[in-house]
Amino acid sequence: MEESNDKKKKSRREFLKKGFLAGAGVVAGGSLIAAYVDKSAPESGEKVKALTTNGEIIEVDKAHIKTPRVSIEESHKGIPGRKFVMVIDLAKCKNARKCVEACQKGHFLPKSQEFMKVYFLQDSDKSAPYWFPKPCYHCDNPLCVSVCPVGATYKRSDGIVLIDNERCIGCKFCMTGCPYSTRVFAWKHYPEYEKDGQPYSPEASSPGKEGTVSKCDFCPDLIRMGKLPYCAQNCPMGVIYFGDIDEDTVTNGSETLKFSELIRDRAGYRYLEMLGTRPSVYYLPPVDRQFPVNRGFEDLEESVKNRYKNTPYGKNHKL
């Protein structure tokens, strides 16, 4: 028996080494090993311990363990019949940063790379400031995809915009193309990338690679397992709703709502609509807030708190 953090504290590599299947729950006597051992693949020579359903420990060649991650080629297609949408309820966000942390953990990112960023915005001097979590908007008219010279970033049939870091040449044109400052660049090799240990898939955006661009991916690897993206799963306030727009349903895990009704009743909008990028992320305005805005400054790391020092609010309140 081993412990593992609820929120995937243990890296997937260790998990694999200690026996992928030893830990896997065997549902009603069903077997998982068959799904993951592919004997047809050529041997790599590296052995990995695995546990059969009978409880026997066997040694399997690493190349024979099929990763649940989807290949690069497959990742271009998109999950059939789906079109994903995210709704972020600004009234509930108190900058707990659990979305950021879970996302970084899930994607094996260093602290200096954030796929999800939480901004502290104030639209004008007299208007009220609010917390603004910002993932990738997975636009339907994605300028980042248009400007990519090598097709390393692409939009799939399910609306998700992914990056293939095996193809990316690192020209950073997509970063200037995106008006939402969504994309991050690997300015060097970060040791966190090595903790993954699974083969690369654009659907997991991991392991990262020096000299390439990456960004929020809507976690299609989790969606395939029927799970919500890391940010939506881990938000303690249930700020982030996610779902299939063709099904007209979004959920934050504990609450499942009709997307069209939610947007209608709460006056949902898309950020900077006038840019014509047609995002897949909607915001619910910060009305009837559940927390005072300065709650977001509590329990913050000093370096994170300092980010908001130069905002008009931060200056007035001497953060």
């Binding site: 028996m1 081993e2 953090n5």
Partner: peptide, 8 residues
Amino acid sequence: LGVFALQN
């Protein structure tokens, strides 16, 4: 450090 799931 938090709540850990007990596996296996």
